[in-house]
């Protein structure tokens, strides 16, 4: 099944989603408000596709996947899409006008997939006139390498949309775990508290960053500790996800640790800026 896929947001997640969809053969339109961001996205995708080719790992459909992606700056170009994956920054005030715009421009049958870390899907669906067509898919970073996603069914999501989404995910080679709606779903409700608490342990001088992560890797057998995971996800995303969870649950346990906010303010966002809790400058 090939679908016309729209991808909104050309940040780390949007780029990954566009890439895997194109590699599976789906025609993709990647939309972002920033022309510069789109240019960067094009370069990254072309580079990654070339690297996969170089390594003999060109997956999926024949032809050049990078050539299946169009880069555009307005939501109106998504009118012919069968589905749209929204990857805007994790703030309701940013996402809300996007859902209103998608509702205005997309065909009535178009499925709207929210790739959000923590915002309840029902809330995003309420900004449209088609809540049955809205579903959550929490992709993991890096999208091309993570085999499984969390699919989030909101109360009003229709059975057909759940089925369609699961078939689409199979077409791009992703396995999925279906869960019900709620702030942070399962993944981030649990993970964000762990990361935040690991940062607080660091603040309190209980251990240094390396020791904290070693406990998880060597004692619990995790492949990555909470601080390295935070660096991989992006510390700005961690902070905004915690903000969402704190406001949705009204629970101060989710209040971002001071050291996290300081690190973000200094512009050290983890791997993507080569500095976070660890240094990646080599």
């Amino acid at each position: 099944m090939l679908s016309k896929v729209g991808v909104v947001g050309a940040g780390v997640m949007g780029v990954g989603v566009a890439q895997v969809c194109a590699q599976a053969g789906h025609p993709v339109t990647l939309v972002d408000v920033g022309a510069q961001q789109l240019q960067r996205a094009r370069k990254l995708i072309e580079r990654q596709v070339r690297i996969d080719h170089m390594m003999g790992r060109s997956a999926g459909a024949d032809g050049d996947p990078a050539a299946r992606i169009r880069y555009e700056t307005g939501l109106q170009v998504l009118e012919a899409c069968d589905l749209v994956v929204e990857n805007a920054p994790e703030r309701v005030e940013v996402k809300r006008p996007i859902y209103e715009g998608l509702d205005e421009h997309c065909a009535p049958g178009c499925v709207l997939i929210a790739n959000t870390s923590a915002i309840p899907i029902a809330k995003l669906a309420s900004y449209t006139s088609r809540p049955a067509q809205v579903i959550g898919v929490h992709f993991m970073n890096p999208v091309p390498l993570r085999p499984t996603v969390e699919v989030v069914r909101a109360e009003k999501t229709s059975d057909e949309v759940v089925d369609f989404t699961c078939r689409f995910l199979e077409s791009i080679g992703k396995r999925f775990v279906l869960v019900n709606d709620g702030p942070g779903f399962v993944s981030n409700r649990v993970l964000m508290l762990t990361i935040n608490e690991a940062i607080r342990a660091l603040e309190d001088g209980v251990a240094d960053a390396e020791s904290i992560d070693r406990i998880f890797c060597e004692c619990f057998g995790h492949t990555m500790g909470p601080l390295a995971t935070a660096d991989l996800i992006g510390l700005d995303t961690i902070e905004s996800t915690l903000d969402v969870l704190e406001s949705e649950f009204g629970d101060p346990r989710f209040h971002p640790a001071a050291r996290l906010s300081d690190t973000v303010r200094r512009g050290h966002l983890g791997r993507k800026t080569r500095r976070g809790f660890f240094d990646y400058r080599a």
Binding site: Q48, M54, M55
Partner: peptide, 9 residues
């Protein structure tokens, strides 16, 4: 892996 290849580049 391809993630390291990107880091290498």
């Amino acid at each position: 892996g391809s993630m390291f290849a990107l880091q290498l580049v």
